[in-house]
Amino acid sequence: MEKSTERFPLTHVFGFVLSLVLTFVAAWVALEMNLSFTIVMWIIGTLAVIQAGLQLFMFMHMTEGEDGKVNIINIAFMVFCAVVIVVGSIWVLTSGHAAH
């Protein structure tokens, strides 16, 4: 957290280029390569998580300021909840007898 002094928003440009690259790589892997569904999902899922992290740290400066730690705990816990909700719901509702 600093008052900007540099004349060019270098990290922003870098982050932007990186996010475009990640997006197009994900699209390419999914649409152009003939990999199995599971492998594709793992690759593009990982790329999505990286890109989300990029937004959080490079653009949103999640860790800056006196509440940086709180922000990290907050986002980490909510991401944990998000994973529980998504993975848990799908698991519970598509396994065993519930699948039928």
């Binding site: 848990g88 509702l93 396994s95 065993g96 007898h97 519930a98």
Partner: peptide, 16 residues
């Protein structure tokens, strides 16, 4: 992490 105990009888299977 405990919400399914409200509907065990849905029959989600032994593991769940």
């Amino acid at each position: 992490l405990v919400w399914v105990h409200h509907f065990y009888t849905m029959g989600s299977g032994a593991l769940v």
